[in-house]
Simulated scan of single mutants.
Amino acid sequence: MTAPIVFDHELIARHLRRRKAGAEDFVTSLALYDLQDRLLAITRKFEQALIMGPDGAALPARGESHDGVFAFERVSTALPAPGMPLVDPEDLALPRTDYDLIVSIFDLQVINDVPGFLARIRRHLRPDGLLLAAAVGGNSLTELRQAFLAADAALSGGAFARVAPFIEVKDAGALLQRAGFALPVADVESHVVRYAHPMALMAELKALGASNPLADRPERMATASLVTTAAHAYQEMAADADGRVRATLEIIWMSGWAPHESQQKPLAPGSAKVSMASMLGNDPKA
Rank of each mutant, 00 (worst) to 15 (best):
V227I: 15
G180K: 05
D242C: 11
S190Y: 09
Y195E: 02
L214V: 05
R220I: 01
D242P: 10
S262N: 12
E219K: 13
Y234D: 03
A238L: 07
L176H: 08
Y195T: 05
E168L: 09
P213N: 07
S190G: 04
R246Q: 12
V163K: 00
A238H: 04
A172W: 06
A238Y: 04
E250L: 04
A231V: 04
E204G: 01
R244W: 14
V188G: 03
L226S: 00
V163N: 01
A210V: 01
P184I: 05
Y234T: 08
A174N: 12
T223E: 00
H232W: 10
L249W: 08
E261R: 15
G243K: 11
T228C: 01
H232Q: 15
H191W: 14
G173L: 10
T228Q: 04
P184K: 04
E250I: 03
G180N: 07
R194M: 12
V193E: 05
E236H: 12
P184A: 05
W253E: 01
V188N: 06
V188A: 06
W253L: 06
K170F: 13
K206W: 03
D216F: 03
H191V: 13
D171V: 08
V169K: 05
G180M: 03
R246G: 02
A247T: 14
P218H: 04
A182E: 10
G180L: 01
H232T: 15
D187A: 08
T248W: 04
A203T: 11
W257I: 12
R162C: 00
V245P: 07
V245L: 07
A203M: 09
A241G: 07
D216G: 05
D187K: 00
R220L: 12
N212Y: 02
E219G: 12
A239P: 04
M199S: 12
R194V: 14
A203N: 09
A238V: 06
E189D: 13
W257T: 11
M202A: 13
R178P: 02
A210R: 12
A179P: 08
R244V: 08
T228S: 05
L175R: 03
Q177V: 11
E261W: 14
R178N: 11
P165T: 07
V163P: 00
A224H: 01
L183P: 02
E261I: 15
P165H: 07
P259K: 03
L214T: 02
G180T: 11
Y195F: 15
K170N: 13
L175S: 05
R220Y: 04
V185Y: 05
S262W: 11
E219T: 12
A200I: 07
V188S: 08
D216C: 06
A239D: 02
W257C: 13
G209I: 10
M199W: 06
M254V: 01
R194W: 14
A247L: 10
A164I: 07
L226P: 00
R246T: 13
L176W: 08
R246P: 03
A239R: 15
H191M: 08
M202F: 06
E189A: 15
A207V: 11
N212P: 06
T228V: 06
A164D: 06
A258S: 13
T248M: 10
A186G: 09
A172M: 09
